[in-house]
Design a protein around this nucleic acid. Structure first.
Lengths: 135, 135, 135, 135
DNA sequence: GTGGTCTAGACCACG
DNA sequence: GTGGTCTAGACCACC
């Protein structure tokens, strides 16, 4: 698995994991319908508790990025991914706003900020190759 | 004060307050050297706990956006504001990354995302007029 | 067989199967004494595990909806079907209660709920024709 | 609290709890905006684990029946309750269907079933008085 | 083997 | 004191 966790971070582990799985989906490293490791296997792999993995999986299932089957385990949403609906855009604006504000207060101009965003966006969709392709 | 808090939000109140003060600085609504209400006054005004206001002030002082004097009280940083140093940029990227990833996964393309960012940035620097100018 | 399984449902497969067999009995699509496919045949037909079919059959035998003979195989109860005894009614109330409560909380009025129930009941006893009559 | 749990039931404890809270909301025993016991208090009261109570609360928050605040704790949704949208109706039909089918197979006729449903619905909206009014 | 549930005890952020 | 997170270990249903 390509996931890298910072156990010291203030960002909850389950969220780091969920974020990186979403990023894997966005980049195509995780293809639609692709099976993910079982909660136990991933927990062992990452050296964290099974419940923490489970919380990440449940969160993503809830949002529609994953499906969880009785026996097949966990797979990437095989159908259409959740859309950028108004609820998501509102959340996105809410989260982006303080970041943009602080960037502005610190003297980052509009172009610098949008270019940073572009660079990020592109590095997500076209990630630098690294070790194994998926898991 | 122009601050509007959502007491039901999952975002901590002290962070909402700190964020909006930074936004006020970014927009110019809070000018360099300008005095801010005392912890007590602002807490009473907003109907929140003293400690919450204090935590927001201390956080902003720590980051260099405010100065706190025994006698003069709290004022907006009169000198140069904190710069967009590498530490800030790293934090910015870390926080922006999962947002960009989810936006991408949900089908928002690069242009839509950057335009959303631009719109936000401009609305911060040039906020719609509303009520009293500052406090 | 008219059975349709949703392998991704949170409802256990064996229960989906048992439920649809009961529905077949309720509708008359499965007549008293009628033979059912062998465990192996049905499992192959539905593409599921032997044990899953077996569990559904055993459950229904236990409740009195099926009979399982060594030689004749599995047949629909040829005699009187299990009655709506107090044990069943208690279970029915227990399962219905939270559904009625949530419907009420969500603003569905008594008439809407009972009409929904009637529609369901009728569609079960008089199902829309579809493909082969039974198996 | 008016909640009664059956620790031996096959129905998960957290679901029993969530169901009874919804029923409390439907009946008016839990009024909009009313505070609920803290997870710890309710867990102690019911003799179950705090995480089990938390799961029930989180589920209901997710569905829009509760709000969870940092300090105020948990309150009943003060605004409009979730509506009986198509997603709910689909779930309702899916859950009701096997119950109606078995009732039919066991010889309960349409009137008996709908009357049972009505009786339940009314007993929820107008529950028999019992001990303390709320918590 | 899988995920689902429950318990237990701990630490932390928040207010 | 509140909920949020994490860990740990256990049992169960399902397949």
């Amino acid at each position: 698995m390509f996931v890298e966790l910072d156990l010291q971070s203030e960002v909850p582990i389950y969220k780091q994991l969920a974020d990186q799985l979403i990023e894997g989906i966005a980049s195509g490293k995780l293809a639609a319908g692709q099976p993910l490791p079982s909660v136990r296997a991933l927990a062992a792999d990452l050296g964290i508790n099974l419940h923490t993995v489970n919380k990440a999986y449940q969160t993503l299932k809830q949002e529609g990025f994953l499906e969880i089957h009785r026996k097949k385990g966990v797979i990437v949403q095989p159908g259409p991914l959740p859309a950028a609906d108004e609820a998501f855009l509102a959340r996105l604006r809410r989260d982006l706003r303080p970041l943009a504000a602080e960037a502005s207060a610190r003297g980052l101009n509009e172009q610098e900020l949008t270019e940073l965003m572009q660079t990020l966006y592109r590095s997500i969709q076209n990630p630098p190759p690294e070790g194994g392709s998926s898991l």
